[in-house]
Design a protein around this nucleic acid. Structure first.
Length: 363
DNA sequence: TAGGCCATCTGGTCCT
DNA sequence: AGGACCAGATGGCCTA
């Protein structure tokens, strides 16, 4: 299993098993240090330029934190070689037991900080895993794959915003999976397909509005929605045309619906933790609203929010696009009463630097 | 068993 | 001086 217990405090003592010099005077590192000291004592140092620099840095590191009562030892004293020119830089000092102890403490503190830093980094990566289009607890994306998928996802969304129209599913999947490993590609494709099925199941069989079990959480986590996952799948349904033109039910909501689908309950895929698989740029509201003339007219970007009582409201931020993708409303016509999450609406006329995105994406 | 992924240690560098 | 950041090294775990 790839899943591991990150940030497990009980793992911290395990540092001793890595052979570090901490609490292990007989470890490899201790031996190396002892050997270096022995070399110094024997005067067999024959440093080239790189070694001088390295030795200087090492000496500088060793000096940190030492007391004045430490015995200073001239570097040349080690070799006692009168022919060699005196080396510049800080003088090496003898590692007294007190200095060794302080050095150990410094190193321990640095190791602890490094662990914390890496744990924070992993935590951030976990958060990123939850917002990329495929999230699975049992088949966790690797770090590199998470970053790649996130990059592709950002790119895909940017393209949707730029074009103002939905891409076809194939190109969307291709975009998401670009540069990913085969297993990750399969995983992402599987997630997309599964979500599409869920969407269809909810839409076609129930035909009812969707309810969020925990709308407050979901809106905080993903304050946006999209719908009409896959025209391909929709067309395969009995009411494909209707779905294509009128079904603006939110796949995102569908993913939060208590589904009877066995796939939905599968522990392998927890796609409901992922953001919507938006393939068409429709950040539509509820199904009911989607039937409004505006929604039917096309690509309207909206924002949902939730008040403290759990009731949902919505605001449309004037990003209505006609079928041709041309803007039919004012992108900055902010509503008089902005929802709490108004900052997530799309500033379409503030186009991101697509040239840079493009260069980045194709690198 | 090889390879991928990961956590940790470690030393160097840069910055405050 | 000390902390943050980085990259290399190392060893463990897991899977094909």
């Amino acid at each position: 299993m790839l899943t591991r217990l990150f940030n497990e405090p009980s793992l911290l003592p395990d540092m001793q098993k890595f052979g570090g010099w901490v609490d292990d005077s007989g470890s490899e590192d201790s031996k190396i240090k002892d050997e270096e000291q022995e070399r110094c004592r024997l005067g067999d140092e024959d440093l080239d330029e790189g070694d001088v620099k390295d030795g200087s840095s090492r000496a500088q590191s060793e000096i940190a934190g030492e007391d004045d009562d430490d015995e200073d030892v001239d570097e040349d004293d080690c070799g006692d070689d009168g022919d060699r020119p005196k080396k510049r830089g800080p003088k090496k000092r003898k590692m007294t037991p007190a200095r060794l102890e302080r050095s150990k403490v410094r190193r321990q503190k640095a190791n602890a900080r490094e662990r914390t830093r890496m744990h924070d980094l992993n935590s951030a990566l976990d958060n990123l895993r939850k917002v990329v289009p495929c999230y699975s607890k049992t088949q966790k994306l690797s770090k590199i794959e998470t970053l790649r998928l996130a990059k592709n996802y950002i790119w895909a969304l940017s393209e949707i915003l730029r074009n103002g129209k939905r891409p076809d599913v194939v190109s969307y999947v291709q975009t998401l999976c670009k540069g990913l490993s085969q297993p990750t590609t399969n995983l992402v494709a599987g997630c997309l397909q599964l979500n599409s099925r869920n969407f269809l199941t909810e839409q076609c069989q129930e035909g009812a509005r969707f309810h969020l079990p925990n709308p407050s959480f979901s809106m905080h986590a993903f304050p946006y929605q999209c719908s009409r996952l896959s025209s391909t799948h929709c067309q395969s349904g009995s009411n494909a045309h209707s779905l294509r033109n009128h079904s603006f039910c939110s796949a995102y909501e569908a993913l939060y619906t208590e589904s009877t689908s066995p796939e939905y309950n599968s522990p392998d895929y927890e796609s409901h933790h992922s953001p919507p698989m938006c393939v068409n740029g429709n950040f539509a509201l509820r199904q009911q609203e989607s039937l409004s003339p505006d929604a039917e007219r096309g690509y309207q970007y909206s924002v949902h929010y939730t008040n403290l009582h759990g009731s949902r409201s919505s605001a449309t931020h004037g990003l209505a696009y006609g079928p041709s993708g041309t803007r039919s409303g004012s992108a900055h016509s902010e509503p008089s009463t902005l929802p709490p999450f108004h900052d997530v609406h799309v500033h379409h006329d503030r186009a991101p630097p697509y040239d840079e995105l493009n260069a980045f994406f194709h690198n």
